[in-house]
């Protein structure tokens, strides 16, 4: 028997504390067809709770449109549109432009409705990259959330530019000569920072409150914002469904996927990582996609993660927001 059942007033009592942290209202409802332990479906449910009612979702083609919109059913309790694979950002920017024009012209009620576009790592980092860059650069009042499970899972686990170094996928298999994906993961959050987007953040389904806070913050931004949400895919990662949350936590604790935000150019860690980070091996060992790795290869990954971590820390410690720099000039 767990603590909550023994003592309904304990911190673990969902009924008592959770409604204070997140609405009980569901905008992404159950009954959809996602795999057991799907980190992305969970993250979307949390995102919708944080966004609330006045939202329009544009969904890129991918697992989520497949599992949530099999005609004549839908899991979406928010206005939702899906057009194609590479254009979620551009459709979302059209939604924003349409709502803005209609509101200005008095053709719809005068209240702010947020356009939110979502896509997987393939739909965002590869085929939808140009549309995303365009939408962010144009300054639309919209949020883009990339749910990165590190490969084209919907089509059968092919590599994308989000796939980590040496991971085995169906197009970057662990062969006898070539051991999995041969390049390092593309750092898309950094590319979004370079677009001068007012708010950029990384997130993970395993840190729900952190993720929802970031979504709420991004929603408030008048202009473009970007959240890169790391999500577990038990099917593609060859990991047990019940390790969904655990793997997200290990990704943070090993420093493989740090959680931070960049507000007006200033970097800030949002979830603390133990001073002595866990070795990457602890994250890698639970996943079939890394099963083929040799100790030497794991060492190569460890060194890269350490260096990336140090580079991020330099930004966290030294970066200033534009507002701070402006104030300094004024003195």
């Amino acid at each position: 028997m767990n603590t909550a059942m023994q003592n309904p007033k304990s911190i673990e009592s969902f009924e008592l504390y959770a409604p204070k942290l997140a609405t009980k209202e569901e905008f992404f409802v159950g009954g959809h067809r996602a795999c057991q332990g799907c980190g992305e479906a969970l993250a979307i449910r949390l995102m919708c709770k944080a966004l609330g009612k006045d939202t329009v979702i544009t969904n890129a083609t991918g697992c989520m449109e497949v599992i949530s919109s099999v005609y004549p059913t839908t899991a979406w309790n928010l206005p939702w549109i899906h057009v194609a694979f590479p254009n979620s950002a551009s459709v979302g920017s059209g939604v924003e432009a349409g709502l803005t024009a209609l509101r200005r012209k008095g053709k719809i009620a005068d209240r702010r409705i947020k356009s939110v576009a979502i896509g997987g790592d393939g739909g965002t980092m590869d085929i939808g990259f140009q549309a995303l860059s365009g939408a962010m650069e144009r300054g639309h009042d919209m949020l883009y959330v990339c749910f990165d499970n590190e490969a084209y899972m919907n089509t059968g686990i092919q590599r994308s530019s989000g796939t980590p170094f040496l991971a085995a996928t169906t197009t970057a298999p662990a062969g006898k000569v070539v051991p999995g994906n041969q390049v390092w993961k593309k750092n898309l959050p950094e590319i979004m920072v370079a677009h001068n987007v007012p708010y950029v953040a990384t997130a993970c389904q395993s840190y729900p409150i952190d993720f929802m806070n970031k979504v709420k913050k991004a929603r408030q931004v008048k202009g473009p914002s970007y959240i890169h949400c790391f999500v577990t895919c038990p099917t593609g990662w060859r990991s047990p469904s019940e390790t969904c949350i655990k793997l997200g936590r290990l990704a943070l604790e090993t420093g493989i996927f740090p959680l931070y935000e960049v507000e007006d150019g200033k970097y800030r860690m949002t979830v603390e990582v133990p001073e002595k980070r866990r070795p990457v091996q602890e994250y890698l060992k639970g996943q079939g996609r890394f099963r083929h790795l040799t100790p030497d290869q794991i060492q190569v990954i460890q060194e890269r993660v350490d260096i990336e971590w140090d580079m991020l820390m330099i930004k966290v410690q030294n970066s200033k927001s534009r507002a701070e720099l402006r104030a300094k000039r004024a003195k």
Binding site: I81, V91, G98
Partner: peptide
Amino acid sequence: ESEHSALSSAMGASAT
């Protein structure tokens, strides 16, 4: 930034 996005944005706007 492209014609693909021109029609895609047009669709998003038209859908509102």
